[in-house]
Design a protein around this nucleic acid. Structure first.
Length: 453
DNA sequence: TTTTGAGTTGTTCGA
DNA sequence: GTCGAACAACTCAAA
């Protein structure tokens, strides 16, 4: 009788040791995916659509044998395992706040039926909790984490599994993908491996320089593949040598692992500031005016071209260049004085690669309330960032057509154009220089409150 | 226990 | 235009 291979965030066949474990006893296994309403219902259309496409790709790779069930995983997994006569259910570890709890509930329910839940591997090169200081506690600063992470090392990519896939019972069907205002890139393992190979062979050696220029296709854009485990970071790490560019890219993979580790240690940090003063004592704005400003930010109508280009890229592509993510995040938190959680929720809704750990902690880094946070006085200048990283203005013109007639870097300051600017592009909603000082002042006041109590 | 050096991504100001 | 200092201390990691 076959065992069960329960897929979750590892929608691939290669470099997936869980699958080898699942086939070891019987030579055959039931590949299962459960559409969990607790995750599906609150998910945005972008996430639903990508997952639906990815499941179709996985099903094709499994010759149509993927068993999809809808409902509470505790009930569904136990039902499938019992009916299949399985001795064990195999998973890769999930370290997210919801996933970890769910897996313990499933483990208990399976145990009552005499079925084992076997954990093999995780979505990370080094599983969260494995890299610790000498005293066994977790790192809170990236650089020492990175050094220890490299010392710890990781396995070579796993061999392909030798398993016969069987669908033991009737499939509930892969959910249909909601319509989106844009096309998502191809999903699935084959697309992930192709995208990785193209980046590795064509763009990796320029990565250190090009990754900061949003007008150029200089980043890997692998986030959505990593998020669903269509490729394992181990597969990518195994291809990296020791050039400067490869080192920079390896550090980006390590950031993903660091933030997963932080979330594992502090599950509440997905939505609460690691520095609690920012939730308790900071003077964030709220009310009608704050809501208006948030809407202007979200729609790409702030009057700051580099910010607006990024926010519009998000809405038209479901993706935003990393450099611009930092700039728009800084603008929301430090120019508009809105809590990082509002921006993080917007990103989670629209980014095709939205990952809870990286998103929450990236925002907290910008806001200054996270682990290893940026110094609070480090406030991005939205004009200066545009002039520095989009020096020819090509990125802005691509996403802000009202400014397409302005040449070169003049697009970054349309208010300087003689005779004013037209075409319906909005005036600046706030004055950056004034809001920067306001932000620093609010920070100082928060510290006074913090030390007084 | 104490000490010391260091900490992703920036901006502004004045010389 | 370029350069260094100031920005604000504070916490963390490791010796």
């Amino acid at each position: 009788m076959p065992d069960i291979a329960w897929f979750r965030r590892d929608l691939r066949l290669s470099d997936n040791p869980m699958l080898t474990a699942a086939g070891e006893r019987d030579g055959s296994a039931v590949p299962l995916f459960v559409v969990d309403p607790a995750l599906w219902e609150p998910a945005s259309d972008v996430r639903r659509a990508y997952l639906a496409h990815s499941l179709r790709a996985l099903d094709a790779d499994l010759s149509g044998q993927l068993l999809v069930k809808h409902g509470d995983p505790v009930a569904r997994v136990v039902d499938v395992a019992r009916r299949a006569g399985a001795e064990s259910v195999h998973i890769a570890a999930d370290f997210g706040p919801y996933g970890a709890q769910r897996d313990e509930a499933v483990r208990a329910a399976l145990q009552a039926e005499g079925i084992d839940l076997v954990v093999t591997g995780s979505p990370y090169a080094v599983a969260p909790g494995r890299v610790t200081k000498d005293d066994g506690t977790a790192y809170r600063v990236y650089t020492p984490f990175y050094r220890a992470w490299r010392r710890h090392g990781w396995r070579a990519p796993a061999a392909d599994p030798d398993v016969t896939w069987v669908m033991a019972e009737e499939c509930d069907g892969i959910p249909s993908a909601p319509d989106l205002p844009f096309d998502l890139p191809a999903a699935g393992e084959e697309a992930a491996l192709e995208r990785w190979a193209a980046f590795r062979d064509q763009r990796l050696q320029e990565y250190a320089d090009h990754r900061n220029l949003p007008a150029i296709d200089g980043t890997s854009a692998m986030g959505h593949h990593l998020k669903w485990g269509e490729i394992h970071p181990r597969t990518m790490l195994a291809d990296l040598g020791d050039s400067e560019a490869e080192d920079v890219f390896r550090k980006e993979i390590a950031w993903r692992e660091f933030y997963a580790d932080v979330l594992h240690q502090r599950p509440t940090s997905a939505r609460q500031s690691l520095d609690a003063r920012f939730d308790d004592a900071f003077a964030w704005d709220s009310g009608d005016r704050a809501d208006e400003l948030f809407e202007a930010w979200a729609a790409g109508q702030t009057g700051y071209p580099f910010v607006d280009a990024g926010m519009r890229q998000l809405l038209t592509e479901g993706w935003m260049h990393n450099r611009v993510r930092m700039v728009v995040a800084s603008f929301l938190v430090k120019d508009l004085h809105l809590p990082w959680q509002r921006g993080a929720a917007h990103f989670m809704r629209w980014l095709r690669d939205a990952d809870l750990a990286s998103n929450s902690h990236g925002w907290q880094w910008t806001a200054g309330c996270g682990t290893d946070a940026s110094p609070y006085h480090r406030v991005f200048n939205p004009v200066g960032q545009g002039e520095r990283f989009d020096p020819d203005g090509d990125y802005v013109r691509r996403y802000v057509p009202e400014l397409a007639h302005l040449p070169g870097k003049a697009v970054h300051q349309p208010w300087e154009v003689l005779g004013g600017y037209d075409g319906g592009y909005p005036e600046r909603v706030v004055d950056h220089a004034a809001e920067r000082l306001d932000a620093l002042d609010r920070f100082a006041r928060m510290k006074e409150v913090g030390t007084a109590t």
